[in-house]
Computed example of a mutant assay.
Amino acid sequence: MRIFDDDRQEWVGLEQEQRIAELHDRDAVRQGKALRGAVTVLAVGGLAFGAWALGWKDEPRPTGYLTVVEGAPRSTDADADEGTDGGDMDAEGGDTAAPSPEGVPPAPYEEVSDQEGYRLAVPRGWIRDAVTGQDSTVVNYRSPKGDRRLQVYRVAESSPYASLRLWLDAEGKPGGFDQLGPVERTDDGGRPAARLDYTADRFKGEPDIGTWHVVDHRFQAVDGELYALAVYGSDADGRDDEEDFMTTALSWFCPPDEICPEPGTH
């Protein structure tokens, strides 16, 4: 017996119709599996996209690049938290003194060009006077109170050591003179020098401040000539200040009409 297949628009036998029905059922199963697979793929893809999108939102923002201006201050978290201003402080809480710029004497000294042609470093406000002798002019710079002094003059002897020995052997020492040690032979930048430390109670024409401490340094300068630098101060406040004064004086000293090394490289 044959029946009419509406879908195929033809007459088919019973056996053929059964095979067609089986093919329809099999195709329906395959289509169902394919649909479920597609839904699964879409679902997994959606979850992956959602996870990526959430992860992207949590990513840190790109780090910006800042142009640092040379010499501009840089703030730190510690500065922001503690409110510091970046200045150095000493143990007492005061500002730490900044070092002197190159070519500038340390405070409170200033560079002077003396009338005799010397380059010197003396404390600000000191008063100059000069005494012209037979061999050279003795230049003095005194503090306003007269309790400190820097003296400079040319030496006529054959060597710095011989000059100091001659002075020690001569008459007319200041009152209460006390030599603190032997004459010390030293070296100033490869040139001969000698030094004498002593104390005295009185100097003619100088104020009575008690015991004076004197550092007398005689040396050969860059011009090959011999000079004397002497520093005077009160012994009551210790002797380090006169030693420091002499160090500064030697660093900045330059004889007349000479080009000298930079201060500190003597």
Rank of each mutant, 00 (worst) to 15 (best):
R191W: 00
D187T: 07
Y161T: 15
E157N: 11
E171V: 12
Q115T: 11
S163H: 11
D208M: 02
E171M: 15
P99T: 04
Y153S: 12
L120K: 11
T137E: 13
G210S: 12
D129T: 10
F203H: 01
V139G: 09
V155R: 07
H213C: 12
G146A: 03
R154E: 14
G181C: 14
D147H: 07
V152H: 05
S143F: 12
W212I: 05
G125L: 10
Q151D: 09
G146H: 05
Y118H: 10
P99I: 03
W126Q: 08
F177Q: 10
T137Y: 10
P207D: 04
P207E: 01
D187E: 09
L166P: 05
P101F: 00
V152K: 03
E110P: 13
W167D: 13
D197F: 01
G133T: 14
N140K: 10
L164P: 14
V183G: 01
P106R: 04
D135F: 15
A194S: 03
S163K: 11
P182C: 03
V139W: 10
Q179H: 15
Y118L: 07
H213I: 11
W126S: 09
V104R: 00
V138R: 14
G210T: 10
L150D: 02
T199D: 03
V152E: 03
A170F: 05
R154W: 01
S143L: 06
A98G: 06
